[in-house]
Structure formats: structure tokens, C-alpha cells
């Protein structure tokens, strides 16, 4: 059952159409990721879903409620983690969480207990009394996530949760998101890191230039764009003329030497390994490894959108704390 249903949603800023009539749905209990390059319209979409931006056109239904007309009702059961940590600099970690809980009408005792619980769970118990401005980037992001789930929301929205923070904190945050999801929270997140989408999300929407160009599970996205079967052999030595020899013995396949000791064989049909092993053996070549090559999500993204997207190692650009 889908908990978020978006139909023909669009957003115009003056002359610029940042989101161009997108439709998608998010199933209850899943981690759904919006993957796209900078400026694709990810933040604009999250802002519309959470009530920070008014759609120019289209419909949003969240848990059966009209997400535009009844947004104040919807905001009671959604949690929001913005792309920048935006808690109060002057307040301590603990005070920040208690304050955020009060916005959701939680009682004083309940607020304080929940704040303590989350500080402990996020490994921030020791720094709960420090002012927010003294936190490192990674700690700030964790506290911002804690603030987003203080009222135990049904749906959690995260805008680029790991952008610009150190690799270790990023890893911890991914684990926290998975853990929340295992406990029943539906997660909608955006990212421009392909590996993050692949590792974390059950389903992914590719968003490019304000349009959703594909929505599917990671496996299905991988399978559907795979038109050929490819096997890669690693050999113990180099042999001159191997390519043409292979080609002659196995008509209908494509051969490509990718390095001195590696050769790739592609075919629209399923590839039987045995005949190839016999071929190599007959030519006095030992095979050290044979593996099936699958396209990466990066290649799939490139194929569908024509855009090369950032790799995860870009995390370094934000710098360690």
C-alpha cells in the first residue's frame, strides 16, 4: 500500500520550472530514494511534500490525507531532516531535542525521556550539554536526525543526509536510517551519491532536470537495462591473437580484451562457461577467475539519463570535520 502518492506535481519559480509534473508513490515501510544531480529538483520536491513550498500544480496524498490542504495535520506524523543542520546554536543538544519535542505537543517528562534516549542511541549522550554550535558537522547532522524523529514519525524525510560530512559519521547515519526503517518508519530520502542509493534504498527514483525518468527497485533497474550477458575471464598469461581466435571459434559473441590478462565476452544469449574453459585449456591458458559482469547502477543511470553522476568518494569534498 502506498503511503505517499504524488500526481503531476510541479513547481515553478518565476520562469524556471524546477519540478515538471512528476508522479510517483512510496510504499508503506520502504526506504525510497530520490537520486539525481545537483539542481535536479530534489529539495524542491521534499519542500513541497513537507509543507515548506507550495506546489504550482499537482496532488499530494500522504497517509490518506491531502498533503496540500491538510498539511498541518500531515506534519504531526512526519519527521523532517533538512539538507543543512538547522537547530539552535545557543541551545545544548539536549535542550534542542526537548524544544523540538514540544513543537509536537509532547509532555515535559516524555520530552526529556525521549531526548535522553535519542542522545544515547546516537552516541551523543556525553555531549548533550554542549551548545549545538560546538558540535562537529557529523554530530550536528546526527542531532538534526534525532530532532526529526523525536516525535516518532510514521514517515521520515531526509534531504541529502550524508552530504558534506565525514565518512565515518556518514556510515553511522546510514545504519541509523536502516535501523529506523526496520522498526517500521517509512523513509523518503534524496541523495546525489549513487552508492548510497544502491546500498540504502529499496526503491529509487531517478530525477533529472525536474523530471522523474525512472522509478523501480535497484534490482529491477539493473536487470532491465542489461541487454547482454557478459563474462570476464582472468588468464594467467597473455596470448597474441586471442581475440580473433575466440571470435572464430564462437561466432555470435563479442570479444573485448580489457587488459593484458583480461578478456570480456558478451552475448545476447546466456553464456555457457564449459566450452570456453575447454577452449582456453586447448590453448594452454589457465583461467584464474571467471565472473559474470553486471552493469553498475552508475551505468544504468548513465544509460537512462545520459548523465554521469557523482561517486560516493565525493564525500571527501565536504571534508572531514
Amino acid at each position: 500500500m502506498s503511503i505517499i502518492e504524488v500526481t503531476n506535481l510541479s513547481k515553478r519559480f518565476g520562469d524556471l520550472e524546477a519540478v515538471k509534473g512528476i508522479s510517483f508513490s512510496v510504499a508503506e515501510g520502504e526506504i525510497f530514494g530520490f537520486l539525481g544531480p545537483n539542481g535536479a529538483g530534489k529539495t524542491t520536491t521534499i519542500n513541497m511534500l513537507t509543507g515548506l513550498a507550495r506546489p504550482t500544480a499537482g496532488r499530494i496524498t500522504i497517509s490518506g490525507q491531502d498533503g496540500i490542504k491538510n498539511i498541518k495535520k500531515v506534519q504531526r506524523f512526519i519527521g523532517i531532516v533538512p539538507d543543512e543542520s538547522n537547530l539552535y546554536n545557543e541551545l545544548s543538544g539536549f535542550e534542542n531535542l526537548v524544544f523540538c519535542a514540544s513543537l509536537y505537543e509532547m509532555g515535559k517528562r516524555e520530552r526529556e525521556a525521549r531526548a535522553r534516549e535519542l542522545l544515547a542511541r546516537f552516541g551523543l549522550a556525553g555531549t548533550g550539554k554542549r551548545p549545538f554550535k560546538a558540535y562537529s558537522k557529523g554530530m550536528k547532522r546526527k542531532l538534526t536526525i534525532a530532532a526529526g524523529i523525536i516525535h516518532d514519525p510514521k514517515i521520515l524525510f531526509l534531504d541529502e543526509p550524508t552530504t558534506g560530512i565525514d565518512v565515518e559519521s556518514a556510515g553511522q547515519i546510514r545504519e541509523l536510517i536502516k535501523d529506523l526503517n526496520r522498526k517500521g518508519t517509512t523513509v523518503f530520502l534524496t541523495t546525489h551519491y549513487i552508492e548510497e542509493a544502491e546500498r540504502l534504498c529499496h526503491r529509487i527514483g531517478f530525477i533529472v532536470d525536474g523530471k522523474v525518468v525512472a522509478v523501480d527497485s535497484v534490482n529491477r533497474l539493473l536487470r532491465e537495462t542489461q541487454q547482454e550477458n557478459t563474462v570476464e575471464f582472468t588468464m594467467d598469461k597473455r596470448k597474441a591473437g586471442l581475440e580473433s581466435l575466440l571470435q572464430k571459434s564462437f561466432p555470435g559473441i563479442t570479444v573485448k580484451e580489457i587488459s593484458a590478462h583480461k578478456v570480456r565476452i558478451a552475448s545476447p544469449e546466456e553464456i555457457e562457461l564449459m566450452p570456453f574453459m575447454q577452449f582456453f585449456s586447448a590453448n594452454n591458458i589457465k583461467i584464474k577467475e571467471a565472473k559474470i559482469v553486471r552493469p553498475t547502477l552508475e551505468e544504468v543511470f548513465l544509460k537512462i539519463t545520459g548523465i554521469k553522476i557523482h561517486k560516493l568518494n565525493k564525500e571527501k569534498e565536504g571534508g572531514a570535520k
Binding site: T50, G51, L52, Q75, R76, E84, N86, Y104, A147
Partner: peptide
């Protein structure tokens, strides 16, 4: 400027 005001705008308060 600090963007903490957004937090209030998306809170369930009129």
C-alpha cells in the same frame, strides 16, 4: 538566516 525558522514553519502549529 540560520534556517531554524523553517523548523517552526513545518511544525504542526498554525
Amino acid at each position: 538566516r540560520q534556517r531554524s525558522f523553517e523548523r517552526l514553519l513545518v511544525a504542526p502549529i498554525s
